[in-house]
C-alpha cells in the first residue's frame, strides 16, 4: 500500500473530483491506529467498530470545515476521542456500567469476549484501566501502549503537559494499587 503524506492528502481533498478518493486513502492509512485507540477505551470490538465508523462519517461530513489549523491526523484523532468520551458518558448515564465498580462489568464482558485473548494478569490490568475516568484512561493508554510524548497528547486532548503528567502519575499509582489488591 502506497502511503500518502499529509500534504498530498490535503491537496487531493481540495478538489471535488479527488475528494472521495483522498478520503478512501485516509481511511486506509488511519483506520488501524484509530481503531486501537478506540478499542482500548471501550474494550468491545463491536463498540469500537461502530465508533470508528462514526468517526469517519463525522470527518467526511465536516471535511470542508477543516481549515488546516492543526495537522489532519490531530483533527481526526480529536473526532475519535470525542466520540469515545460521549459514548462512555452515555454508557454511564444509561447505567449499563456500574459506576461504583466499572472493573467488575469489564471483567464479565472480557471473559466472555471471543476477541479477548489475554491471560489472567492482562485481564486484571484491563479491569484496573476500566476503573479510571475516561480522560485519565485515555492518557494512560496513549502513554503506556503508544509511547506518545506529553506534547502530542496535549495537542490532542487540549490539556497542559503538567496536568497530563499528574494525571498519568495518578493513573499508574491507582493501577498498581488495584493490581496489588486483586492479587
Amino acid at each position: 500500500m502506497k502511503l500518502y503524506s499529509e500534504k498530498e492528502i490535503l491537496q487531493l481533498l481540495q478538489s471535488e473530483n479527488t475528494q472521495r478518493k483522498a478520503f478512501e486513502q485516509i481511511v486506509k492509512q488511519y483506520s488501524q491506529q484509530l481503531y486501537w485507540q478506540i478499542r482500548r477505551m471501550v474494550f468491545s470490538h463491536d463498540d469500537a467498530n461502530d465508533l470508528l465508523q462514526d468517526t469517519f462519517i463525522k470527518a467526511w461530513q465536516n471535511i470542508d470545515s477543516f481549515r488546516g489549523d492543526s495537522k489532519f491526523t490531530t483533527w481526526l484523532y480529536r473526532i475519535a476521542i470525542n466520540e469515545c468520551i460521549s459514548f462512555l458518558k452515555k454508557q454511564h448515564q444509561s447505567e449499563k456500567v456500574d459506576l461504583d465498580a466499572p472493573e467488575a462489568d469489564i471483567s464479565l464482558q472480557l471473559e466472555s469476549d471471543s476477541y479477548f485473548d489475554g491471560d489472567e494478569i492482562q485481564l486484571k490490568l484491563q479491569m484496573a484501566i476500566a476503573s479510571l475516568p475516561p480522560k485519565q484512561r485515555m492518557v494512560f493508554n496513549m502513554k503506556y501502549y503508544q509511547d506518545m510524548k506529553y506534547g502530542e497528547i496535549s495537542d490532542l486532548l487540549g490539556t497542559s503537559v503538567g496536568a497530563l503528567k499528574a494525571s498519568y502519575h495518578l493513573a499508574v499509582k491507582k493501577i498498581e494499587q488495584l493490581l496489588n489488591e486483586m492479587d
Partner: peptide, 29 residues
Amino acid sequence: RIGKRNPFKVPDNYFENFTSEMMSKLPEK
C-alpha cells in the same frame, strides 16, 4: 509484571475489508 502485549483481537480480515465497507457506507457529498 504485565508488559505491553495487546490482549485484544479483531475478526479475520477485519482491517483488510474495513476500507471498502466504510466507503460503501459513506454518504454522497
